[in-house]
Design a protein around this nucleic acid. Structure first.
Length: 800
RNA sequence: GCGGGUGUGGCGGAAUUGGCAGACGCGCUGGACUUAGGAUCCAGUGGGCUUCCCGUGCAGGUUCAACUCCUGUCACCCGCACCA
């Protein structure tokens, strides 16, 4: 018999709505558990089958924790500011607010149909003024602490979205979202000083339970490097400062390179004999996008600054200075000392321009290639450093530099400050005004939220300014400080703003006095388990850690880190093994799956499909196995017999409780389900089970297939919801078999298996093995060389 | 180039500290029940020259014993990419 999911799933969803069993309680004396999934961007397409995988996984964790007596916070909300909604609004001339409402309604009904145990009383929406009031408030605190500043700078500008992008949003030189060309454009932008937190963003990872690849990716992205800054005298009288991680190779610096954008080029204009040539090179370099620059990695170009030389402070020799775009203006000092013998890039450049290559670390063949090994090799041709190992030479050189006042130790980061301005409508307005007298002045906190005004058109202007800039009534205002004439900032915040603190709002979502009460934050934070996509490792995850640390510094939060544990799910691919996408035509719609198989089957299948952290292709055929399993579980109700314990099932049930409990904790949902399937097969082999055994089985199943579990529970006459029943416990002694089956090997090959008592000693086990007919035959007439007995595992007899 | 990951039946995938490779499921084969089977149930299912042998990307090594450890190598995926 098949169970009628079309009837029972809506039935239990309605009951859960009415009885509200998944509400996080206000009682702060209870042990808490905070499970978090990344809140979705409510797009027009609705949910796809990728969404439910992480949601179901943490729903399982949350449901189990709840049954184990924890006060669980498992919330959901909407990250609803963003470009697709705005673009849809522009095209269809509908207010983005309306579009958002529609999309949210669709998403919410789809999520509800999955039976996820979210506490919907805590639903939040980043576009809600009562929410973004606090996003703006946090921005103002950053501004007041000097961590938000406006800067005229070359930014990544998407030619299609007409919007500035953060470095993290530019992928292979094109816009992450629309794949259009990204050009460099000089604009005045609000920036957040995330670089001030670079060190802590690395070091505080230490105690956290993040999967390793997230940690390493963040560390690499922040890119901390230890080195030194060194001043080189030049024939111009100016000094030229470089950054290097290899100050030990200073004696091998045979030329210098500065970035095309370096300020000294202009300064030395009158001294540079070939300025026309230099100027032409700079112009060419400025036209290149980042993408083109990286295309040219192998082919180094550059121009020597004729008439200007530098002096190597170690050798005292005059060396030439070049400009080249292989040196980046934005990293270090925008200038380098080139040591072609020990740096591949310098080597390529030196070969091309015929510059001298001087070996200063022995061990390689510097005529053929750069020798970059730092672990092995002694210094040569290096005066007072000769004979030292690289590490010692570095120390000696730093001492040398510092004593003479020509350089010092220096740490650098790859991480750049966060470009925080967007010239779009559908985002949080930046709550600042520019006064002719006072400069940038914050909107008073009591005036927050600064709401988005109504505009006629949401389209960005031709100049790339936000549509808000056309709202003169809104833009022109009085300075909150002096009352004089002032103009509002018309840029809005990036989409990442709202998601940088949303996990805090869930703790106390209706508070209109603070972003969340101190008690709520102290109780709920940190998030105990946060699961989300790998694509957010260097964006959302880094940004939200940064904001959390800032809020810790200003005493809002008492935890330095927002997330105690971070895991990441694998993608669900199309049936052809490729990434699911509209253009590939391999998208599976979850609505169809729920209609044809039910939500419980869908949940179970998405967890059974494979290792949670690994990608796996969707297969509609395979779903049937999960449906069949649930049908067979429902049918157990018909073979319930008696009370108490069925002897043949006692040990399998204890083992199952142990296995499912452990597997949920370690995210091995697929093997937990496999174990339940195996036990179900055992139950059918036995032919009957007792009522309490079925209830135990239903409890174990309930996090995975909650509707089926509730239905069985009710059919057995139980009055209370199984979703909040007590999680079963197991007796360790009842998970161990009295007799075990042992494989017997001869020379490492299995020849037979024997049964032995679990606590039999070595000799007894060997006796049993040798009594076996097959083993007897195999060792007949041979000499036994060695006998290995691993109790509970294996017997191996080596014969000759 | 650097960093991380993955290679196991026809398919998705299992396999605590090295200890019966292929759990569980899909698919497939045969049977039962049936007007019917794309429902359900039962049996079988890595390959082969089937008393035995071969099999976890490939080639070696350590071990009584290797998917698991070591050395080398190939393929694919993801991230970063001139960061001095």
């Amino acid at each position: 018999m098949q169970y009628d999911y079309r009837k029972i799933e809506p039935k239990w969803q309605k009951i859960w709505d009415e009885k509200n069993p998944f509400e996080a309680k206000q009682d702060y004396t209870l042990p808490k558990y905070y499970t978090l999934v990344e809140f979705p961007y409510p797009s027009g397409q609705g949910l796809h089958v990728g969404h439910p995988r992480p949601y179901t996984a943490l729903d399982i964790v949350s449901r189990k924790k709840r049954m184990q007596g924890f006060n669980v916070l498992f919330p959901m909300g909407w990250d609803a500011f963003g470009l697709p909604t705005e673009n849809y609004a522009i095209k269809n001339k509908i207010h983005p607010k309306i579009v958002t409402e529609r999309n949210v309604a669709r998403f919410k009904s789809q999520l509800k149909a999955l039976g996820l145990s979210f506490d919907w009383n805590r639903e939040i929406n980043t576009t809600d003024p009562s929410y973004y009031k606090w996003t703006q408030w946090i921005f103002l605190q950053l501004f007041k602490k000097g961590l938000a500043y406006k800067k005229e700078m070359a930014v990544n500008f998407c030619t299609s979205c007409k919007v500035v992008l953060a470095n993290e949003e530019v992928v292979n030189g094109v816009c992450e979202r629309c794949s259009s060309a990204v050009i460099r454009k000089v604009k005045s932008q609000w920036m957040l000083k995330i670089t001030e937190y670079a060190d802590r963003l690395i070091s505080d990872l230490d105690g956290l339970d993040y999967i390793e690849r997230v940690k390493t990716q963040q560390i690499n992205w922040i890119g901390k490097s230890h080195g030194a800054e060194i001043d080189f005298n030049t024939t111009t009288g100016d000094k030229l400062r470089v950054y290097t991680t290899r100050c030990d190779t200073l004696f091998g610096a045979t030329y210098m390179v500065i970035a095309p954008e370096h300020a000294n080029v202009e300064k030395w204009k009158s001294l540079i004999k070939n300025y026309d040539e230099v100027e032409a090179y700079r112009f060419e370099a400025s036209k290149k996008s980042d993408f083109e620059r990286t295309e040219l990695v192998k082919n180094k170009t550059g121009v020597r600054l004729d008439g200007v030389n530098a002096i190597n402070p170690a050798t005292g020799k005059e060396i030439p200075i070049f400009i080249s775009d292989y040196v980046l203006a934005g990293y270090g000092t925008g200038a380098i000392m080139a040591v072609p013998a020990h740096d591949e890039r310098d080597f390529d450049f030196a070969k091309k321009f015929g510059l001298p290559i001087v070996e200063v670390v022995a061990g390689g063949n510097v005529e053929e290639e750069a020798y970059t090994d730092v672990a092995e090799g002694k210094l040569v041709n290096s005066g007072f450093l000769n004979g030292l190992e690289v590490a010692d030479a570095k120390r000696a050189m730093i001492k040398f530099l510092e004593e003479r006042g020509i350089g010092e130790e220096k740490i650098n980061f790859k991480l750049r400050d966060w470009v925080f301005s967007r010239q779009r409508y559908w985002g949080e307005p930046i709550p600042l005004v520019e006064c002719e007298k006072c400069g940038w002045v914050p909107v008073p906190e009591e005036e927050l939220p600064l709401e988005l005004p109504e505009v006629d058109s949401y389209e960005p202007t031709e100049t790339g300014e936000s549509p808000l800039s056309l709202m003169t009534d809104w833009v022109n205002c009085n300075c909150p400080k002096c009352g004089g004439r002032a103009k509002r900032e018309t840029d809005t915040m990036p989409q990442w703003a709202g998601s940088s603190w949303y996990f805090l709002r869930y703790c106390d979502p209706h508070n209109d006095k603070e972003l969340a009460s101190k008690e709520a934050l102290q109780y709920w934070m940190p998030v105990d388990w946060y699961n989300g996509g790998m694509e957010h490792t260097t964006l959302h995850l880094l940004y939200s850690r940064f904001w959390s640390k800032f809020l810790y510094d200003i005493d809002i939060l008492d935890k330095k880190e927002p997330y105690a544990k971070r895991t990441s799910h694998g993608m669900i691919l199309g049936e052809n093994g490729e990434k699911m996408s509209k253009s590939r035509g391999n998208v599976v719609n979850p609505d169809d799956i729920i209609r044809d198989y039910g939500a419980d089957t869908m949940r179970l299948y998405e967890m059974f499909i494979g290792d949670f952290e690994q990608s796996a292709p969707w297969n509609t055929q395979s779903i049937k196995g999960c449906k069949r399993f649930l049908d067979r579980v429902m049918n157990l109700v018909d073979i319930v017999k008696g009370e108490g314990i069925t002897p043949e099932l006692e040990k399998p049930m204890h083992k199952l409780i142990k296995k499912v409990s452990a597997d949920i904790d370690s995210m091995r949902f697929n093997t937990a389900i496999a174990a339940m399937m195996g036990t179900l097969n055992t139950i059918y082999d036995v032919g009957h089970l007792t009522k309490c055994e079925l209830i135990t089985f239903a409890k174990l199943l309930s996090p995975f297939a909650p509707h089926v579990a509730e239905e069985i529970n009710e059919l057995l006459g139980e009055k209370n919801l199984i979703s909040i029943a007590k999680w079963p416990e197991y007796d360790e002694s009842k998970t161990i078999d009295d007799t075990v089956e042992l494989p017997v090997q001869i020379n490492g090959k299995v020849r037979s298996t024997v049964m032995a008592p679990k606590d039999a000693d070595k000799d007894a086990i060997l006796g049993i093995a040798k009594a076996d007919e097959k083993i007897k035959a195999a060792i007949e007439g041979k000499t036994i060389i060695k006998e290995i007995v691993v109790p509970g595992k294996i017997i191996n007899i080596v014969v000759k």
